[in-house]
């Protein structure tokens, strides 16, 4: 893998926990790599499997479902 590989990651964040947690990370100024693009959902159980596959097909290097 190239040394300066910058992956594109799609993140599905549950509104009630992971999204709130990501907000709190901001309030606490915790620094993390800027590669993830958050998509807010109402529950991690809402994420359709097709969407995960779609993201990978379109070139995402990773998908995170957090909830």
């Amino acid at each position: 893998m190239a040394e300066n590989f910058e992956p594109v990651i799609v993140g599905f964040l549950c509104n009630w926990c992971a999204y709130a947690g990501a907000d709190l990370a901001g309030v606490s100024r915790l620094q993390y790599p800027p590669n993830m693009r958050p998509i807010r959902v109402m529950c991690s159980g809402m994420v359709p499997p097709e969407s995960v596959i779609q993201a990978l097909k379109l070139g995402a290097d990773g998908v995170m479902v957090m909830g």
Partner: peptide, 28 residues
């Protein structure tokens, strides 16, 4: 588009990547 809590506050050391991320967030 949450470009503060999930962007500027957590990518303070990488303004360039943060701006790119913000663009994506706005686009989405």
């Amino acid at each position: 588009a949450n470009i503060r809590n999930q962007n500027s506050w957590v990518h303070q050391n990488d303004p360039k990547a943060a701006t790119e991320k913000a663009k994506d967030q706005i686009k989405m």
